[in-house]
Design a protein around this nucleic acid. Sequence first.
DNA 1: CGCCAGGTTGTCG
DNA 2: CGACAACATGGC
Length: 272
Amino acid sequence: MSDSFLIIENVRDLDLEQTLDCGQSFRWEKREDGSFAGVAFGRSVSVSLSGTELRIENAAEEDRALWEDYFDLSLDYAAIRTGLSALHPVLREAADYAPGIRILRQEPYEALCTFIISQNNNIKRIKGIVRRLCEGFGEPLPDGAFAFPAAERMAQLEVDDLAPLRAGFRSRYLIDAARKTASGEVSLEACRTMDYERARCELMKITGVGVKVADCTLLYGLHRVEAFPLDVWMKRAMERLFPEMTPAAFGEYAGIAQQYIFHYSRMHPELF
DNA sequence: CGCCAGGTTGTCG
DNA sequence: CGACAACATGGC
């Protein structure tokens, strides 16, 4: 319907493929023309980048700040990359491999749910489950896409209602996450500013949320860039490529280092 | 067909 | 505390 679009100028250190298909979000699809279609904050858009000009189709001018925030454009990634590169030669290589990665500022509840779904699962199937979750329980949007369902909506469901997702044992975790966040028993917003260790514990009050899912929620949903999620790939990478390093040794931007390393490792499986 | 997937939980020793 | 199977499902 709408032919509105938004142009954000002077965008640096962003590559859409590297950022939207590096395993932090599961809702973006690449199209034939190279643009990416997806939904965030209940807004269905398609995004393309030419040079330093970011074009967001079907976005309103009043949402400019929202999209600048989503793509984390206020953070100077070139400077962060320089700092991280100095820490370790392999980190430099990983950062140089995909310098256009940015940590998206996703909605906290969406990040929580998608990484609950991610456990002991593969990315292809994670995407399918997330899509069915949105189509089944999210608000329909004018262009036929669906918003990510609200916690309040999911809190009213029973575990069996999620059977069509084929999410297996994760369904009851999703319901527990919905109920505890909707009721306020777990406060995602409080985790934004809480002491890091405290925030982790807060999230782990949810059944099915352990250290790794908590860290992913903090990093991708609450932009706690000190969080350093250790999945199977990262554990292998730490053993093999950074035997003398600890997560804390990567500093205040450890989470960004983690994303460079994760993506680099996944693209170079022959290293392991 | 068997192994594995951006883990967590419960159960043993 | 540390190790280890079980957990649903389906991609490859």
